[in-house]
Design a protein around this nucleic acid. Structure first.
Lengths: 191, 191
DNA sequence: GGGTCAACCAAGCAAGCGCTAGTGTAAATC
DNA sequence: GATTTACACTAGCGCTTGCTTGGTTGACCC
């Protein structure tokens, strides 16, 4: 129980843990399995993480932080039109689900396994991400590109996107860009 | 390990198990917790179910079968227009998520904990339900009410609806009917 | 009134769990 | 050259897990 900084070693271990959490689920993943995947013994694990819960929190924090950075970058790069921004957010979301898949699947499926303190801390990060979405959706509503309740629209859209981890096959014929385009077309009322 | 029929007693036990699975998650729910909730001892549980996995399968089967029945009934009761049928499916889906919430949350969250045989059997049930959706969406596409790829539209819509279990508050101001209406309005291009 | 049977219980086994304590060691720091 | 630090090891404690075993109860049946 030495440190809980963010050393490069810890980052790498976190990445490997994410993979196992996806394969087995958090509860079914034992510290011995984690240690073996990392090439160390189970006891050594607790040099890097206070307990098993902290590994889960680290995985989710990493993924959410990346999503936030990528989404912000996508918004800065794209055109200023509401439609372009909607599409940029959707594509960024899907690309994150692809490249950083493990961490995000864990965040979606194992959120409830976080203890209250970790959940509290991480929900602030998540709120920041969702705020980006609501900003973009507000702009689209103001332009008349979409209609409806901003709260509901935001949640419907995020639901549709997050659900993709259940069925989307990256090796299939559709690119993240295709999906983003199709989704935006579905919800906009004039192009 | 006597029987695995569907006695009324077993049905009741299944309902209670669903509640615990929602509260704690499948892996964290022990057979002792289940037994206590049911008012029996842990050993007696295995008179009704072969093993813990079978309880999970029973919960999910019950929920999916109900959803299928309710959706079919809703389709038979409503008008024949594509829009009415879309809305009826959406409302039925949301009402099922409400009234039969536990079983559905379990189906959504714990699907991966099913062993391969159970998963295979249950995915047929789920496919039958999704087929209803695709039929309704095909009709809406044919009428020009919505546009796009039928496969993608179906999955986006189901994603948006399933995601509601994460944020929807039945005690809040919005009724399932409101949500269904808003969702259909969001994706239709002419009303 | 003996037999059947679903439903339950008490007791416990073998395996696995998260985590701790104490030690070794090579590199970095003083 | 001595001390500290980072990282890993061995060994195992205390507890919980899913599940089994062998036996009891009470309602129903011919």
């Amino acid at each position: 129980m030495n440190v809980m900084n963010d050393s490069p070693r810890r980052k790498e271990l976190t990445r490997q843990a994410a993979q196992l959490f996806v394969q087995e689920g958090f509860d079914r993943t034992t510290v011995r399995m984690l240690a073996q995947e990392m090439g160390i013994k189970s006891g050594s694990l607790f040099h890097h993480f206070r307990d098993k819960q902290e590994i889960l929190a680290a995985v989710i924090e990493e993924g959410t932080q990346n999503a936030l950075v990528i989404a912000k970058a996508a918004l800065e790069e794209c055109d200023n039109s509401a439609e372009a921004r909607l599409q940029a957010m959707a594509r960024a979301h899907l690309e994150t689900l692809l490249t950083d898949r493990n961490a995000h699947v864990v965040a979606l499926y194992e959120w409830r396994r976080l203890d209250p303190e970790a959940r509290d801390h991480l929900s602030h990060l998540r709120d920041a991400y969702e705020a980006l979405w609501e900003e973009v959706i507000d702009a689209a509503l103001a332009e008349g590109l979409i209609h409806g309740d901003r709260f509901l629209v935001a949640r419907f859209v995020m639901g549709a996107l997050n659900w993709t981890v259940r069925w989307y096959d990256p090796a299939g014929p559709r690119s993240p860009d295709d999906l983003a385009h199709e989704l935006v077309a579905m919800i906009t009322h004039r192009a």
